[in-house]
Design a protein around this nucleic acid. Sequence first.
DNA 1: GTCTATATTTCGATAGAC
DNA 2: GTCTATCGAAATATAGAC
Lengths: 207, 207
Amino acid sequence: MDDGATRERILDAARQVLADRGTAGARTQEIADTAGVNKALIHYYFRTKEALAEAVFQRELAALLQPVLRTLGSPLPLEEKVRTVVGLYLDKLSAFPQLPGYVLAEIHFHPERLDDFFAAAVGSLPEVAMAPVFEALRRQIDQASASGEIRPISPPQFMVNLISLCVFSFAARPLLTRVTGGETGFDALISERRDTLADFFLMGLRT
Amino acid sequence: MDDGATRERILDAARQVLADRGTAGARTQEIADTAGVNKALIHYYFRTKEALAEAVFQRELAALLQPVLRTLGSPLPLEEKVRTVVGLYLDKLSAFPQLPGYVLAEIHFHPERLDDFFAAAVGSLPEVAMAPVFEALRRQIDQASASGEIRPISPPQFMVNLISLCVFSFAARPLLTRVTGGETGFDALISERRDTLADFFLMGLRT
DNA sequence: GTCTATATTTCGATAGAC
DNA sequence: GTCTATCGAAATATAGAC
């Protein structure tokens, strides 16, 4: 058929199937069917299922981390960073709610892929890659806490708290769906979070 | 060998292997080796790998939820509930840090198991099971917000925020381990959270 | 209850035609 | 580049002796 387009179709199909079943649970046959191509073609483009799964994982993890790291490392005021990150996450994840469950599962079951990820997508050790973001936050936090606006908090704790509050509810979606009485209940929960999360977080920093 | 003890040995071994590899990735051979028994015995006690995986999952999810639900539904003051839950989680998860990654993955890839879980372990619909906990929180939150201590917040948001802050960092442990420069860095992160999380959360509720 | 040996199925991967 | 057909390797599950 094409010129890179088939490869993309396979990647998209793989993303869908892998997000629902994980690397170990996914069947190349199902990926092929979803992509509308033959099984053999998958091995033509990606040598093994594992290689395909790794390619998809790198892509999705990058899509999940990059906007947030960019925002937190930017020159925006601290409060705006928080509001931006909350908005970014809730929008992105509402559009693809399986993403956290899938990415966390892959991180958990295939942690070695993280090493390739940082080497390839970032080009350095993870600690080094994070350094500028931590630096930017450190400066703003020091300043805001010196003036008594907030309590001191380490940049990693700041990030972990913020990301936890945004991402966890999606990772636990199947559970929350049931506890809140169905998909509608879950959507309502998320929509409420959209309005309250940033304030909750920012208040949590206060002195 | 025994009278229930072998069954327990298999369950323990399965827990270990399943937590590391998930249902789809786990091999009955590895579970048998870990338990020190033969593969066939696993099928003698649990008919299929799936049935074994489900038994383990029910167990671990219950262990994860019950203490927290009991605490939040108890007559303790709100602030003490929060401090107790933070302590419970960080202790339990420090002792078995793979637990959140495993449980969330199983919830994600096998959501139908949740229906059996609520039917069996709780004996009712999830919404019904949660009702008394939500009720207890609702009363305390109403009271505290009427007296101006805190802002109003719905019990589900309260719970999701609290659990997110406790659990997420463990689910993302392989990533955080790398970002914080190794296991030592991760342990330090968690130990810092032990001292700061409850205050952060309680401050977040403030008006 | 526990084992050894084996049947059976599923699935990733390859060969080879077009 | 894409397909059909097939191989070969796991891996689950069972039969049957002890």
